[in-house]
Design a protein around this nucleic acid. Structure first.
Lengths: 211, 211
DNA sequence: CCGTTTAGTGATCTACGTTAACAGTGAAAC
DNA sequence: GTTTCACTGTTAACGTAGATCACTAAACGG
């Protein structure tokens, strides 16, 4: 059995994990803690401990704590964008596609409550880090993809109001409300699984879309 | 030179403001800072500085930081409850009253964004302080008052779904979504003043209420 | 082989919420 | 008139947070 030549290297110092390997390792650990304990719970030191490295080392790979956690959210955001694009391309009618998007949105939000909170509920302080801009870019693409389908509904003459953007925002806001409410008050009885989301989306769709 | 015997020692000390006077003074200062800088921005030391007192003095009057800021929110909550009660008692039809309540809710939320965030968006950690319970009590009365009117709609046979509570929650969630979106992203263009709120509420009402 | 770059370290800084130990005030009790 | 004592302050300090500093060991390029 041949052993890889490993540096015995004296010391408790963690071996170099070259380049983006260590970076990915940090992101993984951060995600585990972040998902479990939220933004405040995921401290620099906890993440560093999980990786087995000193807290200072994280600043080699990320500008600050925000960048680490926002990078995680960026991934979730990209997944959402992919999903939205996929739904947008389906050969169904526009109303059905909007419905599917909104349902997927609510589902994703409830599945990743901490990421959702960070992206959609945080006051958006600070501003110009690349990660921040990337997230904004993706989320804007996400919205564009979604509102495009709403505009299709308008074009088909099925929208009861003249402003498609406003309708899109209203539907989004309603779903956002469902997600945030259920996330922040998980102990409240929100009725049968998925009922609140369904009633909200269907109700608003019936109110805004003809037929 | 003979001097009057003046309070020697501690000069910079602030005069005693007996009992709840000082308490009210702290609440006022805390509210100013809280409104301007939010929960994280309103630090114990800043509040104490504003009052002109050492930071530890605040612990004479309040158990901890949470209690101070939640007391502020409690007042806003009581105002909301009063408003809701007043609207509930009006001699108009139930649908109109619900509409008025929701509009008032959104307006209040946008007027007191930081209080709104603390009460409705915070993870509700900790739990059994008296102030906490009082807030929960008031907010539950608030909901009861509101959902009672929604039940009136059901009783009048005007509700399209059988579950009045679910309808009430859906309407609330939608408004909550509008408020939180506009609060957390104040730089986004949300269209004409009040439009998003109006469209969301009216749309959902049309979807859930017959006629 | 040597100098530069890279990726790590522990000590330290500032700011936060909070607690502990102590001190001045004023009014009631003696 | 003195003593006592609750009340309301104070300064000092603790523990934890994010972030920075000065430094160093390994990896790399010539």
């Amino acid at each position: 059995m041949e052993t890889v030549l490993v540096k015995p290297a004296r010391s408790a110092r963690k071996a170099k994990g070259d380049g983006h390997l260590r970076r990915a390792e940090i992101l993984e650990a951060a995600e585990r803690i972040f998902v479990a304990d939220g933004y405040e719970g995921a401290t620099i030191r906890k993440i560093a401990d999980e990786v087995g490295v000193s807290s200072t080392a994280l600043y080699m790979h990320f500008r600050d704590k925000d960048e680490i956690l926002h990078e995680i959210c960026l991934q979730a955001m990209q997944a959402l964008l992919e999903q939205n694009s996929e739904i947008a391309a389906r050969p169904t009618d526009a109303v059905t596609r909007v419905r599917l998007m909104l349902e997927a949105y609510v589902r994703k939000g409830l599945e990743h409550p901490n990421a959702y909170r960070l992206v959609f509920c945080a006051p958006l302080r600070g501003g110009d880090t690349p990660t921040r801009r990337a997230t904004a870019e993706i989320s804007s693409q996400c919205y564009a993809c979604y509102s495009g389908v709403v505009r299709e509904i308008l074009a088909a003459g099925q929208l009861k109001i003249a402003d498609a953007d406003c309708a899109a925002r209203a539907l989004w806001a309603a779903c956002h409300g469902v997600v945030t409410l259920m996330i922040t008050q998980p102990n409240t009885d929100w009725g049968p699984e998925g009922e609140l989301g369904r009633v909200t989306v269907e109700g608003l769709l019936h109110g805004l879309v003809a037929e």
